[in-house]
Amino acid sequence: MQLVERYGLVAVLVVSFLAFSLLLPQTFPTLGNVRAMINSQAIILLLALALTLPLRSGDFDLSIAGTMTAAAAVVAQLTTTGTSIPLAIAAALLLGAAVGLLNGFLVVKVGIDSFIVTLGMMTALGGLSYAITSSSIVPNLPNGVLRLARTPLLGLPSVVWLGWLLVLVFWYVYERTPLGRYLLFIGGSPGSARLAGLRVDRLKIGAFVACSVLAAVTGVLFAGQVGQLDPSVAGQFLLQPFAAAFLGATVITVGRFNAIGTVIALYLLTIFVTGLQLFGAQPWVSDVFNGVALILAVTFARVAARLSGRS
């Protein structure tokens, strides 16, 4: 029973991959398609991992996609107007840190619901992205920026490898260090975390800052991956990280946001969306699918918790 609970989603991943391979032998199980699926999710994976930090400590961060876009806008605008790449990246990361601090301060010290704070922040950052780029697409980013995301290794670009490396780092931090457990207890039982002597406020703010800085890093890589920047993209990156993180919490360490589960969930969603599209489904199918998947993931988690609570 526990095995089913812990690895059920892995089995679904494997089975769905095999099923689509059998149904679409010409297009689905090809190296090109697998590569395309992995590449297309590299940015989402980074955002989803970042998102698990505040989720684990009990807060939402709806602003990650906005932070990513604003950071990408900073890098795009600065590097195409002559600023050096390292300086431009530093400015983008600084923006991320400032967003995280502001989010954390408002949520933890002022006591506003994280949903409201980060929803407002998301919209504000979306607007800021337009301001930075003067409401137009910034084309032709310099090669130095492109190389950050596109340098190939074993047939996959560096942005993918960075995501996978971060999965390992997050797995280690979450499962093998006190920090991972602190965040978990702060999210699950803030009272007992505080009385155990944990610096709850600092850790919560720290989770927001780390999340936003990582989102800014993702923004830099995103700019490099695409090679230009469209300030209107934020909305496309809002939902999928949440779907992956929540669905990921129903697997591996059930009921907890975790790194391995997140990557498994993300690839599962991708397989379905890609498979359906190869069947000729319209592009809107992916939005419907991801939205429904998020709701289903949370529903599964609820039901699983209720069942295990009864036994």
Partner: peptide, 25 residues
């Protein structure tokens, strides 16, 4: 509310204090 986290294992609850004496990572 304050003594333990009911959703976590007993061992995790008990280790929380031991953790508080080591560094974050």
């Amino acid at each position: 509310r304050d003594g333990v986290w009911l959703e976590a294992r007993a061992s995790e609850n008990l280790a929380l204090l031991g953790d508080a004496r080591s560094t974050l990572l």
